[in-house]
């Protein structure tokens, strides 16, 4: 195990990562060539750094559930529920609008953050219990809880958005720190932590082994149930952080915000080299896939392509990449 960076070994080892880097560079070059004056503007990249982290967090959440061969379809519901609960708490503390709400202090904001992340932890824990204790297939368990969490959002709000958050909360989604978007910094921190967790801690390696062969993990004495449970709790926590960023950015929270993120999160995770059958995933791959796709969609948006068309491109992109991978692995 040498620490020396050996490019050739990396290429042999993870062709997928290399492919992603090439893809990102090609997209960047293409977009630059197509509309240099618009694409290369600093503003363009800056707005990306405020937008991308929400999807990035959800993609990592999705990846965490996919490592063990599962899936978490409830991430959007969890994120929105976290934002709504925090919003309702603020409204209870400072009224539904006006300066009292806007000026709520740091302590209250901190409690709001705790409520939101606590929501994610609990929701993730429920998913984990359904999957590991009641042995429900992840896809079915999280379809059920997705309905449940969205349902709770609707019951709490009656449908319309919770509008108006304190300034301190909105700052989480809108300010810059050291010249970089706060959401981006948060995302990078979470990504780095997750990467360390997956590659350097017993829990991370165990998750990878469970995803490779759950039965062998059992016979190797790995506490599979607990590890899988923790992975869903983490997935829930990441989803709730995404919920904080989203509600902070738009100053509102609603039961059906960001529903298109669900598909996109799965796409980013799979494009990033996550094997949906389990056993293989890298945070770096997900970050690269996210970068490639954000460049792609911002480039097309600058060319006045509609968001829908960008969805179309993303979907085709996924299918093309899995096709290429399939033929590469076969040949």
């Amino acid at each position: 195990m040498s620490d020396r960076f050996d490019l050739r070994r990396l290429v042999n080892h993870d062709a997928n990562l290399v492919q992603l880097v090439v893809l990102t560079v090609v997209i960047f070059a293409l977009m630059t060539a197509l509309s240099p004056e618009k694409f290369l503007r600093a503003y363009n990249f800056e707005s990306m750094t405020f937008l991308a982290p929400e999807l990035g967090l959800l993609s990592i959440a999705m990846m965490l559930s996919m490592i063990t061969g599962g899936i978490d379809l409830s991430v959007i519901g969890v994120g929105n529920l976290a934002g709504i609960l925090a919003g309702l708490f603020f409204h209870a503390m400072g009224g539904t609008h006006g300066p009292a709400l806007a000026g709520l202090g740091g302590g209250i904001i901190a409690i709001g953050v705790a409520i939101a992340i606590g929501t994610g932890l609990i929701a993730g824990f429920i998913n984990g219990v359904l999957i590991t204790k009641l042995h429900i297939t992840p896809i079915l368990a999280t379809i059920g809880t997705a309905q449940l969490y969205v349902g709770i959002c609707l019951v709490l709000t009656g449908g319309p958005a919770v509008v108006g958050f304190p300034n301190g909360w909105d700052a989480i989604g809108n300010t810059k720190l050291f010249g970089l978007a706060l959401p981006l910094l948060l995302f990078l921190a979470v990504a780095a932590l997750t990467a360390v967790l997956l590659t350097r801690t017993p829990l991370g390696i165990n998750l990878m082994l469970i995803g490779t062969n759950a039965r062998a993990a059992l016979f190797a004495g790995i506490r599979s149930g607990r590890a899988v449970l923790v992975s869903y709790v983490m997935s829930g926590a990441l989803a709730s952080i995404a919920g904080i960023l989203l509600s902070g950015r738009v100053n509102a929270a609603k039961a059906d915000y960001g529903t298109s993120y669900l598909l996109e999160a799965v796409l980013v995770a799979v494009l990033g080299g996550t094997n949906p059958s389990g056993g293989k995933a890298t945070v770096l791959g997900v970050v690269l896939a996210l970068t490639a796709l954000m460049l792609l969609s911002s480039g097309f948006q600058l060319m006045r392509f509609s968001n829908f068309l960008v969805d179309f491109i993303w979907g085709s992109f996924l299918l093309i990449v899995i096709t290429i991978n399939a033929f590469r692995n076969r040949g």
Binding site: L263, V266, L267, F305, S306, N307, F308, L309, V310, D311, F312, I313, W314, G315, S316, L318, L319, I322
Partner: peptide
């Protein structure tokens, strides 16, 4: 998931 997203994107876009 991919085809669904793609078809919807094409339809609306």
């Amino acid at each position: 998931l991919g085809t669904g997203t793609m078809v919807r994107g094409f339809l609306l876009g």
